[in-house]
Design a protein around this nucleic acid. Structure first.
Lengths: 140, 140
DNA sequence: ATTGCTATTGCGAAGCATTCGCAATGTCAA
DNA sequence: TTGACATTGCGAATGCTTCGCAATAGCAAT
């Protein structure tokens, strides 16, 4: 009980989403808060079960879905792969996907973002969101 | 290796890909040559069956897979949806998606592509493919 | 604390797109 | 024409994700 130092933050996040606080949701939410990578549902479930072994697969999917719906986590579906998740309140970034290993690298380019805005503007648009993924292979 | 192929001849295309010419593959390949949109496997199958009603679902998937593998068609997966296909003889382009109307506008930016290559290079990667989508709203 | 309303859960089954195993058939070079 | 082997259709099997439902648990009002 004394190791749950992040309980407050976690509960706050769940209340933000207007969700009832359950041990399962706390475990899953804390996993997302601690994950620095982009785990898929299976990985989130495995990590959450280290905290609460009783969590079912369905609950993992449902909790991730509702957190995404409330905007607290982001979902990514890289080409041909499963849905992956990450916490939403992090700085914006795009992704490099290693097509051999599946490894994800994050990057930001202010210059690309500026060009995107210019292109959108030239077509009479304002950008609401964008998605940029580079599917890459390690240099020989 | 497929940049300058003659896409006007279905049989020639299949032969260049090193594939045996079958009625099923001819039908599917012709469907792809005539499609101006980005049909999914189910749609390709339906259109191909107008030419050859005997084509099975498995053959549609297998043919599309092998054509993609040979670089003759491209695959797209929009937002966790199904895989969609497009003939590969069109100039590369990215998409502006009007989030209100769903209208798609194509664009190309050599400058963005150059920046992408530089970013990938800085991370030790070569770009094999990329995906860039701008989700936009018409300017007020 | 107790109650009552309902959101949430676990379970297994059901979807859905896609792939696979295999015997039959078709293609093409020799 | 032949024969090796590529390709096909069928249906079953995947793999990820969602659903139906009865039991359970959270939470606000008593």
């Amino acid at each position: 009980m004394n190791k749950n130092l992040d309980f407050g933050d976690c509960d706050k996040l769940l209340r933000l989403a207007g969700l009832r606080i359950t041990p399962q949701r706390q475990a899953i939410t804390r996993v997302m808060m601690e994950s620095l990578d982009h785990p898929d549902a299976e990985q989130v479930l495995a990590r959450a079960r280290e905290r609460d072994a009783s969590i079912s697969q369905a609950t993992a999917y449902r909790t991730l879905a509702v957190l995404a719906e409330k905007g607290l986590i982001l979902t990514h579906t890289f080409d041909g792969g499963v849905t992956r998740f990450e916490l939403a309140n992090r700085p914006h970034h795009d992704h490099i996907v290693d097509i051999d290993s599946g490894e994800i690298t994050e990057f930001v380019s202010a210059e690309i973002e500026r060009l995107q805005r210019r292109i959108a503007e030239e077509h009479g648009y304002d950008i609401v969101a964008h998605r940029l993924e580079l599917y890459c292979r390690k240099r020989a």
